[in-house]
Design a protein around this nucleic acid. Structure first.
Lengths: 149, 149
DNA sequence: TTATTAATTGCAAAACGCTTGCAATAAGTG
DNA sequence: CACTTATTGCAAGCGTTTTGCAATTAATAA
């Protein structure tokens, strides 16, 4: 997991990212790499504010607007995915990861990752009955987890 | 549908509401009744701002913060339900109504009501596989509608 | 009916998450 | 190295929601 391209400490491998960005005329900046690294390192959903704060510990110069602008960019390119977990702020994770769906416990706040194929029956039904093409990358289901019954 | 308890014009029946509120020491105010009436009359999801504006046409004295505070209260009591439709503002509807689920088209913004039983297979699966008790009152599925393919 | 009292309101200001205009900076290129 | 233009930080702004507080008012008792 720990990368060898040490532009800043603990940086993940950036080959793909560099390719993605520079092929489209975007520039590789330390801010972008750190932001992407923060998302990859989070192993799960992370908010813009959390990304900002985790980076600021090592690099206080970062601005929150840069985080938002970078997230916008990474979404466009398809490197990160956005999920609305219903708590008033949007969360992000690396698009490479599986488990795009989440069960959010409204009692304890626990988040359970959900296998993708768990939702395919639903997707199929929606397509058949309503002609609706569901985009279930952005999916959070609320309820109570096993422990909170 | 039109009520007989005409405290303000077009007021819905308030027996239940009065019971719910006063049993818990809450007071019945014209503002609360109008807000609840606006939600019931909306036949569907409605935002705080929309509630506020619809009432202000007849009663300009109303304050938006009262709307928010009342919605908070009605949620607690269980008279209204909140849904995050992903457009940066939360929407509400009467907890009594059917069609709790929505298909939201991210291209044209259209909202399609979804039959409740369309999600029961999913609910069952989540319970069986994860022990997760999904609360699908608060459900919006994003994607592209028939027309926006 | 009036007096009492605590819940509720309106107001103004602030909090919150996010966006934007702009001048300064810096990445990529020759 | 010089040049060009994407990118950044800053500060200000946006829309939605929340909050502190004094004034008002619903519910209750007298």
């Amino acid at each position: 997991m720990a990368g060898s391209d040490k532009i800043v400490p603990n940086m993940v491998q950036n080959k793909d990212i560099v390719a993605h960005l520079s092929q489209r005329g975007y520039r590789i900046t330390p801010q972008r790499l750190m932001i992407l690294n923060a998302i990859n390192g989070a192993r799960g959903h992370i908010s813009a504010e959390e990304i900002y704060e985790s980076i600021c510990q090592n690099y206080p110069g970062l601005n929150i607007s840069t985080v938002y602008r970078t997230l916008e960019l990474l979404k466009e390119i398809g490197l990160v995915t956005e999920t609305d977990m219903g708590d008033g702020r949007v969360r992000f994770h690396s698009a490479g990861h599986e488990h795009h769906h989440h069960l959010v416990c409204s009692v304890c706040g626990r988040v359970i990752d959900l296998d993708e194929e768990m939702l395919t029956p639903l997707t199929t039904t929606l397509k058949e009955k309503y002609g609706f093409c569901a985009d279930l990358q952005h999916m959070a289901i609320f309820g109570r987890c096993k422990s909170c019954g």
